[in-house]
Simulated scan of single mutants.
Amino acid sequence: MSTRPTLLRAGAAAACAVTLVLGGPAPAGASGDRAGIRLERLDRGLVAVPTAEGVFLSWRLLRHEASGSSATGLTGADFHVYRDGRRVATVTDSTNYLDRDATASASYRVAAVVRGREIDRGAAVSP
């Protein structure tokens, strides 16, 4: 008996799971993808958490920013990290950053960088 159909179903299920996790903004008026899966309209979801080492930032990779996968997860956009309106870092291969020079009153924003252009700058958050 061949395992090919089982593998194809497993691959399709994994692809659907990735699509659901990556939510991201859908085109105007869309409520899901072509397969009929309904997706949430998620934003960057940036959070800033004070730690003993600084402020830890974490955010979402949105569906339209994902470009593939690697052994450690999805691949996609790089990100510019802004503290109080000034760019403090460019993050590659990750959706988190530890700002060791943070202050308790800092304000952060993150923007995706796709093909050298900054897109999808998220809302500002504070620790």
Score class of each variant (00 low, 15 high):
P50N: 08
D84Y: 02
A48F: 04
I37A: 06
T75M: 13
A48K: 15
S58D: 15
A71M: 13
I37V: 06
T72E: 09
F56M: 14
G54H: 12
R60N: 10
R44C: 03
A66G: 00
G45I: 11
G73V: 07
S67T: 08
V91R: 04
H64W: 09
R44D: 02
T51D: 12
G73I: 07
G45A: 05
R38Y: 05
A48M: 08
R86F: 02
D84K: 01
D84W: 01
T51I: 13
T51E: 15
A35N: 09
G76N: 04
R38V: 11
H80L: 11
F79C: 08
G36C: 07
T51L: 10
V55S: 01
A71P: 05
E53P: 01
L39G: 02
R41P: 00
H80D: 14
T90D: 09
V91T: 06
E40I: 01
A52K: 11
G36Y: 09
A89H: 06
R60T: 05
G54C: 08
Y82N: 08
G73Y: 04
R86S: 13
S67Y: 02
S70I: 02
G36R: 12
A66I: 05
H80G: 08
V49P: 00
R83I: 01
R44P: 00
I37M: 08
A48I: 07
A71C: 09
T51M: 15
R86G: 08
V88L: 14
D84R: 00
S69H: 04
S70M: 04
V55H: 12
L42G: 03
A77Y: 05
R87A: 13
S67V: 08
V49C: 06
S69Y: 05
T51F: 12
V88H: 04
V91K: 07
G73R: 13
A66S: 10
A77V: 02
I37E: 10
G54M: 15
F79E: 04
G76F: 01
